[in-house]
Amino acid sequence: MTNAAAAATVPHRLRLPGSVRRAAAVLAVVAVLLGLWELYRWVWTTTGWTWPFLVNDVSMPHVWTIVKAFGEPAQVNQPSLISILLHKALFTAKEAAAGFGIGAVIGFALGVILVHSRLLQRGFLPYIVGSQTIPILAIAPMVVVWVNPRLPGPLQGWGAVAVIAAYLTFFPVAINTLRGLQSADPRALELMRTYAASRWAVLWKLRVPTSLPYVFSALRLAATASVVGAIIGELPSGLQDGLGGAIINFNQYYSLEPQELWATNVIAAALGIAFFLVVVAAERIVVRRAPETLT
């Protein structure tokens, strides 16, 4: 009781703004994770435990080794690793963004088409689901072979990768758009009928706004999936300009310089997180909903 009272009377100026506190929480979590990494390393190396894997400078380089690798050139007479990786990340981001855009539009359109026809739903849904059971690595070479020759010059190479990223993106968007469009309140649909509303009006004034929270939760998944799709898509394309190329490259030198692959992974993860955050920010702007239903 007295504690609660004391807490309630803490002067307002001592309390940091919400954004600062959230940023501090994020940094604290990162610090704890890095600490755990080093602790694990230390325990396993000092005890000599080898289960589940041998811990040494190759399997788990020091955090500071990885951080230091960013500042140093990967090869002599090259710019620093971080500047190379950022350039490659930009390239991958271009592929992923294009793939995300294509996939989101196709997925949304599929959802809109399927919600209007139970027959199409029955007919197409199994194939849409089935499309995702084929490993992307099995599809990627074919997409490259099919798509690349058809692309105009400036799209050569990365355009095919964008299509591969789109292949991973459209699925969650299509499924969730369909569910979202179907979730319109039956009485609201009845209300629209009293206005003799056209299908088009029902779609844009009722179904689409209702579906937005569903669509955005799919877009959040799709944002990270598009980055994964772009990185994987680079592998069969033989593209060296993106993070996928860098991963293949640094993989070959892993036993000598593991920190460079780790550094690349950090950048790839950061790119995925950046994509995710962009979608979250867009959702904040677009979706007007009761605060408790926002996640």
Binding site: D185, R187, A188, Y195, A196, K205, P209, A290
Partner: peptide, 28 residues
Amino acid sequence: GDYGIVFQDAVLFDWRTVAKNIGLPLEM
């Protein structure tokens, strides 16, 4: 559009303001 209807629940569109909810049939 010869009649207006009111249900047991208000059936308002959450994403619209009060003014835009009232304006919905007029838009239609």
